[in-house]
């Protein structure tokens, strides 16, 4: 009993660690796609900002500066995306893909040129990272049977960006559904002509949305390299941006369901790692690849309308021009 409780707690703990970058990126995706801009480039923005975060932190010694540099880098990538597909009305998928490949090549090339370590950045010491925060009163409540452990392992003891990611979900929810800006943002993604007729600039709204998306991706990248990890490794985003995209679709472009989709996908990965080499009763050994493929399979099944229906924003992927 105690052992299985420990197991569940450690599973939940790693679920949260794995889900954090997914949450940031999925919220970024919501901002971008709700305004009508497809964001395949989540992956590249996260990779680029992870590299910039680690590099800036190594050079300045301050993770705060690293974080800001990461956000700046990610926002620049967003601006390229915007310049291509808002200003020049280029294809959003192609532009996102270009950002991903660009980020892949740029991080390795610059990494090798700067540090000559095969694309990695030098390892960062603990004072150069966002370290786990221990909540107060841990000792006082540790006597409570289940909750004490749960609090100590799952809720407390993460780095600050983990908590920021949860705040980001509520921020996203609040901005998109409870503010005038959010109402306009959703309208721009559904019926841009209507917004334009009301005298609001579609172009400006879309640029603002993708800049917010850029900031959130920057946080995701910083989490990878200067909070969760201690330095940048080549291709360290490892498809997380695409899983976040899947989670966003799975959550039907809504922040709260998307949060749960991220947690589900994080849990699947944590479970996959935990089950590696374990013989289960009745089933036998579950291959870790099944767990890895499951988020994608689930998303395909959802998109195909077999479990509910995921409907994308109406004007997604369509560049806006006043002439129609």
């Amino acid at each position: 009993m105690l052992e299985s409780l420990q197991l569940i707690i450690s599973l939940l703990d790693s679920t949260i660690r794995i889900a954090t970058p997914l949450i940031f990126c999925a919220m970024a995706g919501i901002f971008s796609e709700r305004s009508g801009i497809i964001d395949i480039g989540l992956e590249g923005k996260m990779l680029l900002s992870a590299f910039v975060a680690a590099t800036a932190t190594f050079l300045t010694g301050s993770p705060i500066l690293g974080l800001f540099a990461a956000i700046l880098a990610s926002c620049s990538a967003s601006l390229i995306h915007g310049f291509a597909c808002i200003t020049n009305k280029g294809d959003q998928v192609i532009s996102g893909l270009a950002i991903n490949i660009l980020a892949s090549g740029l991080t390795i090339t610059l990494g090798i040129a700067l540090f000559s370590r095969g694309g990695q950045t030098p390892p960062l010491g603990s004072e150069q990272r966002f370290m786990p925060i221990e909540f107060p009163f841990l000792d006082q409540i540790s006597f409570i049977p289940v909750f004490g452990d749960l609090f100590a392992e799952v809720i407390s003891g993460h780095n600050v960006l983990v908590y920021v990611s949860i705040l980001a979900v509520f921020f996203t929810y609040y901005v998109i559904f409870k503010t005038r800006f959010g109402l306009r943002l959703r309208a721009v993604g559904e019926k841009p002509e209507a917004v334009d007729t009301a005298g609001i600039s579609v172009i400006k709204m879309r640029y603002q949305s993708i800049l917010i998306a850029g900031m959130l991706c920057g946080l995701a990248g910083a989490y990878l390299s200067i909070a969760h990890g201690a330095g940048f490794g080549r291709e360290m985003s490892a498809g997380k941006g695409y899983i976040a995209l899947a989670a966003m679709i799975f959550g039907k472009w809504n922040p709260i369901p998307t949060l749960f989709a991220c947690l589900l996908f994080g849990f699947l990965e944590a479970l996959g790692v935990r089950l590696e080499g374990v013989e289960l009763l009745w089933i036998g050994e579950v291959p870790v690849q099944i767990m890895q493929a499951l988020p994608y399979v689930l998303t395909v099944v959802l998109l195909a309308g077999f479990i509910g229906k995921a409907r994308a924003p109406g004007a997604i992927g369509v560049p806006y021009s006043k002439e129609g």
Binding site: A84, C85, I94, A98, I101, L106, T109, G119
Partner: peptide, 26 residues
């Protein structure tokens, strides 16, 4: 070269997709 590698090609590829694809009509 000591400081540029074949990954440079990825960078060039990304830029080609950007300029020939996304910015094709710029």
């Amino acid at each position: 070269f000591s400081s540029i590698t074949r990954e440079m090609v990825l960078l060039i590829q990304g830029l080609i997709i950007l300029f020939s694809g996304a910015l094709a009509y710029m």
